[in-house]
Design a protein around this nucleic acid. Sequence first.
DNA 1: TACTGTGAAGCACTTCACAGCG
DNA 2: CGCTGTGAAGTGCTTCACAGTA
Lengths: 261, 261
Amino acid sequence: MATGRTHRPATRSRGIPEATVARLPLYLRALTALSERSVPTVSSEELAAAAGVNSAKLRKDFSYLGSYGTRGVGYDVEYLVYQISRELGLTQDWPVAIVGIGNLGAALANYGGFASRGFRVAALIDADPAMAGTPVAGIAVQHTDDLDRIISDNGVSIGVITTPPGAAQQVCDRLVAAGVTSILNFAPTVLSVPDGVDVRKVDLSIELQILAFHEQRKAGEEAAADGRAAVDPDSDEAPPMRATPAGRKGPDGDMPAVMPA
Amino acid sequence: MATGRTHRPATRSRGIPEATVARLPLYLRALTALSERSVPTVSSEELAAAAGVNSAKLRKDFSYLGSYGTRGVGYDVEYLVYQISRELGLTQDWPVAIVGIGNLGAALANYGGFASRGFRVAALIDADPAMAGTPVAGIAVQHTDDLDRIISDNGVSIGVITTPPGAAQQVCDRLVAAGVTSILNFAPTVLSVPDGVDVRKVDLSIELQILAFHEQRKAGEEAAADGRAAVDPDSDEAPPMRATPAGRKGPDGDMPAVMPA
DNA sequence: TACTGTGAAGCACTTCACAGCG
DNA sequence: CGCTGTGAAGTGCTTCACAGTA
């Protein structure tokens, strides 16, 4: 798994909290919209509303970057756009390679939001020889065999994985071996990478499951309108039963006694 | 914007921390894989490794659900799969509607991970009349005009928005009016919803920007191999300059003196 | 013995509330 | 006067370390 230090120690890079970094793109988007409307300055309150956060948090976030506001006035829009872009590294060009050109890979290749902020789709890579040469979003798909060369030739340091889960780790290893140090993973797989390589994960199914959790809770609260609480959401469900967990103490419906099939 | 209470108060639903809820799907996936290999029990250490978290965290997470393990042995795989599924509300069927059938919407409609865990694509909706009737992933696309009816007829409570940003808020409003109470938003927009409606956001471009931030930092550290620190990542960049922020104190490269164009 | 379950300590982020300044 | 910038307090999550138990 990891190569050097094991865990990764709390990543507060250069003193900017990770949580702040994750919000900077949000502020940047709101500021860009203001900039397009030629709004010259904005208060923390207004900008916070546009970005969907509270103003104290926004001011604290900006305080990590420096003192870029004017008391009694607010923030200069253009100036902030520049400072945040620079902080995020968006003033330079980032060639990106997408590996796995299925439905999702193709959707990403066509996604306009990519190009708008310094990211450039430099290569599309797929394992299917039949796809080689086919243009997707105006770019010819290349074969996995040439992955190493494609990555180095284009100076790619950010890779996007949109392969099926079974191929993800292998593709990841090859990307890393070829010099990629940041990976955006859409495959539902836990990737192992050496230390110094960043992985971010986008997992559709996880997001839906989190929503389902809250949704279920809402349904329960609703049903508990009068006097009594927590409805067991599934009385006629298929429950497994193995081993013999003796003194178990789950919060509600311990478990029915039928086996699935 | 919000209807009742304004902010949303720290959402620790029924005592399970939000951070834990967000990890349950991860555990579930790892457990499902073990289950398919007919592994009967697993220790916190092993399962944690498979899910990519540390074992203390995993044990703490499970302790919020109840005492489902056996000391000296570990956790019963099937039993845990059932308990987590139930906790997440996956033992019931969740009809989902996808609005905006472009590249991304179509990719999602075709995504297998949907169906596997209680989620069923019940409807595809698009504003383009030309698309109405076209089958995508075996489901006929329906027109936005019928959105309200489609949502109620199918009992949809989870909506997925994959429209262009300009349409997202309007679609969101209509979904909510029709009875949807959970939304997964892929459009790069901050959505306003009434209280009681959950929104989760998946934003590709934000993920890339976060990666770019760390990537830039790596490049800087690398260059600072000998004696001196922090390289200014862009000396020949286009810097804006408006208003007159007097005593500014950005951490590095204050700002060159040329205007863009 | 080998592993879970959990108080307690530690840490990071958020929010408050107000001093400071244009 | 209005709004930023920030110490200090508050909150929630993570990690430690070990008592408890099959």
